[in-house]
Design a protein around this nucleic acid. Structure first.
Lengths: 396, 396
DNA sequence: GGACTTCTTCCCGGCGCAGGACAAAGTCGT
DNA sequence: ACGACTTTGTCCTGCGCCGGGAAGAAGTCC
């Protein structure tokens, strides 16, 4: 069931495709304004894109004072699959060539079960999306996994929370199953790509994207490109020491950021606070559901629970200390905070901001926005689609 | 006394020039092996380089089994000026086009006197080098300053240790004086470029270069290019918190790495140790010279002074903690330790290594060399020459 | 309805560039 | 010493990229 997607023949065509992807339908004349090419050349390249079926004509554009131009848009039947595998759930979405999400499924899942059952589930979800008429086939798929990846090969390497995946040829296997090109990356990197396409980072070239969920990671974008490091483990900031001689961490050290502030750590703190009677609200929730999550802390804090506010503030301060260091080091133009704990909202953001603005030098923080992610689960799947679209929209 | 240096006309020529710069003289045939160009094209471009005088023919190369090829080398009369302005001294060197140092002067200087007297001194040193017959004029000059720089304009911005320089048009002024292109950068970035050209980083694309001198900074190289951050302050790691609620720092915070371990901090610790009678060796040196520097600590440690060994070990551990965080975050392929404290030698390196290998994750440290800088003062000036040569060897 | 603007197509000539043919210069074996 | 083979450098041809002019198509504005 292989689906042969045409590929751009040269860099000009690739450039045009990405422009159409990022800025939507555009008239030939507008395209001419954006890509430094002569009219004749542009006409030839656009015509070839139309011939190969990657783009289609789409009626007439509004006049700009003279003859009306023809609209060009990416082929409306192109489909990308975005998959975001988390620690405890999986997101699968279908997008069109402009990376608009046409359908999105979320299901609980345990990544520790290993690649084979997880992929069965993912393929089932993809089939479901296909069956609902959203796609006839896929022109590419991007996959995010919660651990480091040897990017060129698309293979997870030594992932701490998904040991069974070490060395599993994710890219190869999925490409076989889906019959289309596949790219694999760390989930945090994909979140960063999502921000680049649809989020706060659209006009920034150097930024950090901190994801605080079950674990903690950081997507690093340098000059508009994701920095993955020499072994694919760049951005693994969960095990930076935040508290000297602090809590023991699964990695064997003490005081790791992740041990003091993450979805897991926060839930544990919440349970302790409830059991010690420091927070009636949490105690009530614990009694009701039998367990607590970061969301419960956020809800209780929003309702005014002082203990929960303290937990959030302390955690934000810890995270802020580490982020302040990264800001001093990297001097980004933007920091985006995302992941499961985003539900803690502005209390968290305020604590992080305070710490960063206090600890980093004025030159680095002077014009540095620190914002919450606004895309939620969309960021990951859009980032995945963006990753593979960059690949498909590059010369063969 | 403007000297008009030819510039490459296209990217091919630029490529060839850089190849000749980095790998020395080469035969036409060898050049053909390294650049993906047809023989005809290559011949045309090389001939043009010869015509413009950027390169010269240099005899016949050894035979590779057939007709002997002609050697090509960069024009032997090209000269770059490398200037490295430190906090308390200045280095000026002349290099040829292959960035070999032909002459090198070092003089004490106080950067706080401001740009005008410092530049007078620099120009005097350059004139001295010229007068000794090393250069007739300069085809470009690179300048390193100990503070952040707005790179495109070549202007220092808000430099803490050189307040008088804020906004001074270094690039413009020196270009006027010297009559040649000038580029300005942070001294740490230039040290990193020096490692790339002549040091440990020749075959690495992503690495960090930590300079521990009067202050502490870090050069960041991503994909073979220096990362300067959005405001030019990337790598400013001296004010990352190393010790919660630690010593007060000039920046207004507490526990900054620089307050606990730098040339200045170490000298102060040494004086205290001497006065408190914890180190007879240091006391003797203090009595003799009236002051102490990091070098004294190194010498005493080498002679077996336990207190000094402790000072070095503690400092290395502090630095190692911060570097461990950077390694987790950035996942470099190499870390080079340089700057004034390199004199502390392997005791320092051992402490840093221990801490990094202990605190960072195995995937990031598995194949990570951490080495001492071997170039010393040469790194800065060669890096400066490399910076401007990259500029001169790019299409106009 | 006429003058002006904008957009598209067609066409020409220059340039970059690859690759083949050929000459020059050397090596190696006999 | 000589011929066969290899490597290197030069010349030439042809293709495709590409910019820009000219002309026509389509609209706007007065």
């Amino acid at each position: 069931m292989r689906r042969m997607t045409a590929r751009p023949a040269n860099a000009h065509q690739a450039r045009l495709l990405r422009l159409l992807r990022d800025e939507g339908p555009n008239s030939r004349a507008q395209l001419g304004d954006r890509v430094d090419l002569s009219r004749s050349r542009l006409a030839v390249e656009v015509d070839r894109l139309l011939e190969t079926g990657l783009a289609v004509a789409d009626g007439l554009a509004a006049s700009r004072g003279g003859r009306r131009s023809h609209n060009i848009r990416l082929a409306p039947n192109l489909r990308f699959l975005g998959v975001d595998i988390g620690a405890t759930s999986v997101d699968v979405a279908v997008t069109n060539a402009e990376l608009e999400v046409l359908g999105h499924l979320t299901q609980p899942m345990d990544v520790r079960e290993g690649p084979v059952p997880v992929f069965e589930q993912v393929l089932g979800m993809a089939a479901k999306l296909k069956a609902s008429g959203l796609a006839e086939g896929f022109d590419g798929a991007g996959i995010g996994v919660p651990g480091p990846v040897r990017f060129p090969e698309g293979v997870p390497v030594a992932p701490p929370i998904m040991p069974g995946w070490d060395g599993f040829p994710v890219r190869e296997a999925l490409s076989q199953e889906l019959g289309c090109p596949v790219m694999v990356d760390n989930d945090v990197n994909l979140m960063a790509l999502g921000q680049m396409h649809a989020g706060a980072a659209r006009s920034v070239d150097d930024y950090l994207c901190v994801k605080i969920g079950t674990g903690i990671g950081c997507g690093i974008v340098v000059g508009g490109k994701v920095h993955r490091g020499v072994t694919g483990s760049a951005g693994d900031i969960g095990h930076i020491q935040a508290v000297p001689d602090g809590r023991p961490c699964a990695c064997g050290n003490r005081g790791c950021l992740e041990a003091h502030f993450s979805g897991a750590a926060l839930a544990q703190d919440a349970v302790e606070a409830a059991q010690q009677g420091r927070s009636p609200q949490l105690a009530a929730r614990l009694a009701e559901y039998g367990r607590l999550t970061a969301a419960d802390v956020g809800a209780a804090a929003a309702a005014g629970d002082a203990t929960c506010l303290d937990l959030i503030r302390d955690g934000g301060t810890r995270a802020g200390q580490v982020i302040a260091g990264l800001v001093s080091f990297f001097n980004p133009g933007l920091v985006v905070i995302g992941g499961g704990v985003t539900g803690l909202g502005h209390n968290l953001l305020a604590a992080i901001r305070t710490q960063v603005y206090r600890q980093s030098l004025p030159l680095a923080t002077g014009n540095l926005p620190i914002v919450l992610d606004e895309l939620g689960a969309t960021a990951g799947v859009v980032g995945a689609a963006r990753l593979i679209s960059d690949h498909v929209f590059s010369p063969a």
